[in-house]
Amino acid sequence: MIRRSLRSGRVIAGGLIVLAVLACALAAPWLAPHDPDEQNLLTTLLPASWQAGGDPAYWLGTDSLGRDVLSRLLFGARVAMSVALIAAFGAMIVGAALAYLAGYVGGWLDWLVGRAVDVWMSFPPVILSLILMTGLGTGLRNVILAIVLVDWTRFCRVLRSEVIVVARRDYVAAARLVGFSHWRTVSREIVPATIPLVVTLLTLEMGIAVVVEAILSFVGLGVRSDQIAWGQMIADGRDAIYQAPWNLLAPVLAIFFTVAGFNLLGDGLRRSLDVRMTEGRE
């Protein structure tokens, strides 16, 4: 299964982009040419180094406080990647647990979870997360919490229907008949069959989490103001778009490539892991 997905061009391209962003985030302190918080009020709003009036020391220019854009971009990847990884896993854990429970047990529990998801999804997700952030207050931990609380439904709904399909297979009934406990039946017979779907959803959710974090930071309801986030950089760069366009372009492109990477990876995994899509080819 892993070998098959590595043959897919989408998986390779998406995976490389994601790995590159992750490497930037991890190695930011060594890669960054300047301290990202270091202000130099003499050289504010410098354009990129190759543009007229650019300074070779500041490759992508500086912002309105004279801070290096490239260094801030690299450190901003740390917030983006932590949110992407932790929030997506959190949403998966909450959503998947409820999906397995609802899909396997069925009956009134399934009804209850299904209606909860319906009600939850009837709120526009961005509005819901803004409301949550207002209530919770800013900060990285609260951004993650808000995303988990909003996006668990995405996992729950899709996974639940898959669990119901698998749970109806005769081999699940057979496992119960030979004496498997409920726990063992779910963990040995049902979960392995749904792993490809979970992996795919997880990857796509990471891309969504990056966007949501950027939106929240953009409106100032994301991370604390002393933390560096791409959304904040976009908000700051808006005013100086003519003097220093890379203040705005750099974080926008960073978000674009990161999300595209996650989506390519997710789409490639879906195509190579989903039996229904691979059957005809082999």
Binding site: R169, D170, Y171, A173, A174, A175, L177, V178, E189, A193
Partner: peptide, 13 residues
């Protein structure tokens, strides 16, 4: 008591 299911396609993981 044990059961043998009709369709081995569905009955074998």
């Amino acid at each position: 008591v044990q059961m043998v299911f009709q369709d081995p396609q569905s009955a074998l993981n």
